[in-house]
Design a protein around this nucleic acid. Structure first.
Length: 144
RNA sequence: GGAGUUGAUCAAACAGUCGCUCCUCACUUAUUUAAGUUUUUGAAACUUCGCUGUUUUAAAAAUCUUGUCUGUGGGGGGAGGAAAGUCCGGGCUCCACAGGGUUAGGAUGCCAGGUAACGCCUGGGCGGUGUGAACCGACGGCAAGUGCAACAGAAAAUAUACCGCCUGGAAGUCUUUUCGAGUUCCAGGUAAGGGUGAAAUGGUGCGGUAAGAGCGCACCGCGCUGAUGGCAACAUCAGCGGCAGUGUAAACCCCAUCCGGAGCAAGGCCAAAUAGGAAUCUACAUGCGUGACCCGCGCAGGAUUCGGGUAGGCUGCAUGAGAUCUGUGGUGACACAGGUCCAAGAUGAAUGACUGUUCGCGACAGAACCCGGCUUAUCGAUCAACUCCUUAA
């Protein structure tokens, strides 16, 4: 598990090092303020319509460049995923935590993360694994 | 010691790193497309012979004040016992300000008390379950009316006679001296017995009878009347009546009590786009509308005035039937008095992630205007009172 993570990280960081330096924010002390979120449905719709898609059985990710120097995140976990609010909160927290620590791999993008029903049946480690997977796929789109 | 009943409390703990949200304090930065204050300059009006002064307006500036914004740091708060289901009752808000009605509709249903109120709670009564602590109960009325009761059964509601029991008559049989016995048919009596059913005109015993029957009697049950106890539901006792009478009201219905409607996406404020309407006053024929319906009520006409309002933002939005401690009254729910405290407020929606240590290895589960209840889900832990069994003294 740890090996996979390091490998993915290393791959992305080697390509995107200049960006990270430019923003001047280190990944270790990542923040997640209001400016890092999508705040209304117009912003959501823009990303869903024009954004590029990557997916796996657990998550669906849309990504679109914005005009800011930081990335912004929107999360959708519908009641179809789980009827219990506790499950939905757990998934959202996992996604938020992942974005917080990994947002600077490629800054300047709006990201919308949509959970599939599979997410409710996964434990936190599996969710993190799926997030790394879908994040890596999106990174490939950007680099091409 | 074991098994159990009821009530109450808790909802793994600690440390570190990073992060979110709200409040607060300090600093930092920027802005006049914030406001004030002060200063300077220009213009206009008035004043003065003039200098000048006053007012208005425009522009600019500031080691100023307040606010906002950018960011940093310090301090503090940050899901539940059910936050859930949305099943009741309220607060709050708007509506035609909720007024009248022997109408409709809905809810509740032993009695008394508590409460803002309730379908909730407490205490009591009655019935049922359990050895017991206790628990459970839509627990008014079918001797007002109407309806329904599958299958089985003779019969399911004005009672009725299938088998049986008994009496009488006729026919013929047996024994045959008669008495008598039994068979078939007919007429009648009978609700003891059988069988059916969830349910069949009260139960047991004695008498009585052709056989039976509350036909009579005793006790029980039921109904009525009275007395006693109790605020009452009801209980106990006495007398009278042979005795109304199947069940079903979670069937219609009757009786008593209560209920206006819609909801924070309520409502208020600011306000791009867009469209021409909106508010106030006043008159009453007609028309229209109305939130169950009727009465009542409102709107349309005319006059006057100028704002109205979607997206979005702000607010409502955290001091309340509040929490807690003590005392007093009450069997209790609870009430009263005094002291102390302020305890989440998000809005694409915070309350988290990771690491380590310990243990009994962690259930159900996430606030969305707010309270009081009910119901449902739930790994367990602790405490108190009580019950049963066993052992010891």
């Amino acid at each position: 598990m740890q090996d996979v993570r390091r490998a993915g990280h290393g791959y992305l960081r080697s390509k995107l090092e200049p960006c990270v330096k430019k923003t001047g924010v280190s990944a270790a002390s990542a923040e997640f303020k209001k400016s890092n979120r999508l705040l209304n449905s117009e912003q959501f719709k823009r990303v869903l319509r024009k954004g590029k898609k990557s997916f796996n059985p657990v998550f669906l990710l849309f990504i679109l460049p914005n005009n800011h120097r930081h990335s912004r995140l929107g999360i959708t976990v519908s009641k179809k995923v789980s009827r219990r609010a506790v499950d939905r909160n757990r998934i959202k927290r996992q996604v938020r935590e992942f974005f917080r620590t990994n947002q600077n791999t490629w800054p300047g993008y709006d990201v919308v993360m949509i959970a599939n029903p599979q997410a409710a049946n996964s434990d936190n480690e599996a969710v993190q694994e799926a997030l790394r997977n879908v994040w890596f796929k999106a990174g490939q789109y950007i680099n091409n």
